[in-house]
Structure formats: structure tokens, C-alpha cells
């Protein structure tokens, strides 16, 4: 019904009648993409939904037997899975908090009259554009206990970053912070530069202290953009696979995505891993929903 009033152009005019109608152009432009995404994103998920109710193993030729909700029940009762969730939660908190502190801090520093500001900003943004897998790999070289540059620079002797089970997760998080603080910095800079100058001038006239100015003017005005950065990074950290998988094989760094990968492609518990994937999927969709609501809110401003 709404489709008939698509353009401001008078539908009876000669221009509108030449060539294809607007509706057919719209359909030609939009429908292939949606079909493509349904075939390659939604259909596979339906396919794995079916397998999540079976005991299928992709490594054998045995046919899949319907087991109902057994996979889900077993997963939700498995204490090891909850350990994986706890590890992931710890990693998300440490790494996102680190990124916000470093990223926002550097943005505050850069939001001044700094010489070569443009060049410095671009250089600082470099880490987040690199491949996570390759970054994880070369941080292994930096973390090496005997010849690594990090132990040398910090004077830590033979400190074991990655082979110490208690330290490994933090070591991965530090690498993630190095890589993604620039992202928080980039968004914070945009937020900071949008704060109207006259607010600071007014605060200065009122003799407001720097702390008061920060908490009453800067932070509230940057908060929405900072929130976008936090939700986005939370979502990405939750999905972490590459960097942790490459850097260590400690059980203490086995996050959800790594557990899922091992279950599906090393233990070949295909049916079980499909069920696990669905549990993860529901969580991600929930976070995505919050994220998109926020994006739209900021867009409307």
C-alpha cells in the first residue's frame, strides 16, 4: 500500500513512464542482496538448527539420529561450558575496560593543540586495521620470555607471559587493548570535538574546576558515542577467536569461540556444536539488538 507513493515525481508524467518503473528498480536493486544473505546466512543457520537436535558427527558416515533437546540439556548442565563463559566474561571486562581507559585517555590528550595531530592520529589508528591473527602471532615474538622485547624493555627478566596459566588471559587482553584502544580513541575524539566550545568558556567564567568541567560537561556529552564504542567492542570481544587461539593454548584462555571451534572441528561433535552455536547466537543477537538501538539513537541526534 505504501509502495505506490515512492517518489515525489508525478507518476503520470512522461519521465516516470519511460524505462523501468520505480517499483521494479527498487526490487531489482534490493531483492538480490536480501536473497543472497538469506541463502548464505539464514539457510545455513536453519541447516544447523536441524543438526543441533541430532547426534551427527561430520567425521563419520553414520546417519544423524534425532536426539531432541539432549544436546542443549547436556551443554547447559556441563560445568566446563560455564568455565568457558566465565573466561570469556573476564576477558571482555578486562579488555574493554582497558580499551576505554587507554582510548579515552589518549583522546583527551589529543583533543588539544598538538603539533602534527593529524599524522599522529593516523599512526595511532594503524593497529586496529591489522589482521588479528597476524597481530597475535607477532606479539608472541614480543612476549617471548627469553628474547622478547617486552621483558627486556620492562626489565622483567624471564617473565612467562603466555605459558603461565594465570597470566595468559591478561597477556592476550593487553594485545587486544593495544589493537583496539585506537578504536575507542577515534570515536571519543569525534565526541570530544563535538562538544561546543562555549560550554567550556562558560565554565571557565564560572571558575569551575577541571574535575567539575570533566564530569559535568565533557563526560555527559561524549557518553553516547563512548557507549557505542563500548557496546561494539563488547560484542567483538565476546566473539574473540583469532588472537587468543593463535597466542596460547592454555585452558585458562579457552573462550567460547575457541571451545566451539574445538568441539566442531577437532572433536567433530557436529550436532553438539550446532546446539552450542545456537546458544551463542542468541546471546549475540541480544547484544546486537542493543547496539543497533543505540546506533539509531545517535544517528537521530
Amino acid at each position: 500500500m505504501t509502495t505506490l507513493t515512492m517518489t515525489r515525481l508525478d507518476p503520470q508524467s512522461r519521465a516516470a513512464r519511460r524505462g523501468m518503473s520505480d517499483i521494479s528498480i527498487r526490487n531489482l536493486f534490493i531483492i538480490p542482496t536480501i536473497l543472497f544473505l538469506i541463502i548464505f546466512n539464514i539457510f545455513p543457520l536453519l541447516y544447523s538448527l536441524y543438526y543441533s537436535f541430532t547426534d551427527f558427527r561430520a567425521s563419520t558416515n553414520a546417519p544423524a539420529n534425532w536426539v531432541g533437546l539432549a544436546n542443549y540439556r547436556e551443554l547447559l548442565n556441563d560445568p566446563f561450558i560455564w568455565t568457558n563463559f566465565a573466561i570469556t566474561a573476564k576477558y571482555v571486562i578486562v579488555s574493554v575496560a582497558g580499551q576505554v581507559i587507554v582510548g579515552f585517555g589518549v583522546a583527551m590528550l589529543l583533543n588539544r593543540d598538538i603539533p602534527f595531530k593529524g599524522l599522529i592520529t593516523t599512526l595511532l589508528l594503524l593497529p586496529m586495521m591489522l589482521s588479528m591473527a597476524v597481530v597475535g602471532l607477532f606479539w608472541k615474538l614480543l612476549y617471548d620470555p627469553s628474547f622478547g622485547i617486552i621483558n627486556y624493555a620492562l626489565g622483567l627478566g624471564r617473565f612467562e607471559w603466555l605459558s603461565d596459566p594465570d597470566m595468559a588471559l591478561y597477556a592476550v587482553a593487553i594485545t587486544d587493548i593495544w589493537m583496539w584502544s585506537p578504536f575507542v580513541m577515534l570515536l571519543s575524539l569525534a565526541g570530544l570535538s563535538a562538544v561546543p566550545k562555549h560550554l567550556y568558556e562558560a565554565a571557565a567564567i564560572d571558575r569551575a574546576g577541571p574535575l567539575y568541567t570533566f564530569f559535568r560537561i565533557t563526560l555527559p556529552l561524549v557518553a553516547p558515542i563512548l557507549m557505542i564504542a563500548i557496546i561494539f567492542r563488547t560484542m567483538e570481544a565476546f566473539k574473540t577467536f583469532d588472537i587468543a587461539y593463535i597466542m596460547t593454548s592454555q585452558p585458562t584462555t579457552e573462550m567460547i569461540a575457541i571451545r566451539l571451534y574445538k568441539m566442531a572441528f577437532q572433536e567433530w561433535q557436529t550436532g553438539m556444536s550446532c546446539a552450542f552455536a545456537y546458544i551463542v547466537l542468541i546471546m549475540v543477537v541480544a547484544i546486537t539488538n542493543i547496539y543497533v538501538k543505540y546506533l539509531n539513537k545517535v544517528k537521530e541526534r
Binding site: 546466512n41 541447516y47 566442531a264 556444536s273
Partner: peptide, 8 residues
Amino acid sequence: PPVVVAIP
């Protein structure tokens, strides 16, 4: 998450 899509 890529692994979720990658299985099917």
C-alpha cells in the same frame, strides 16, 4: 561469530 556460521 564466524565460527557459528562456519559450522553449517
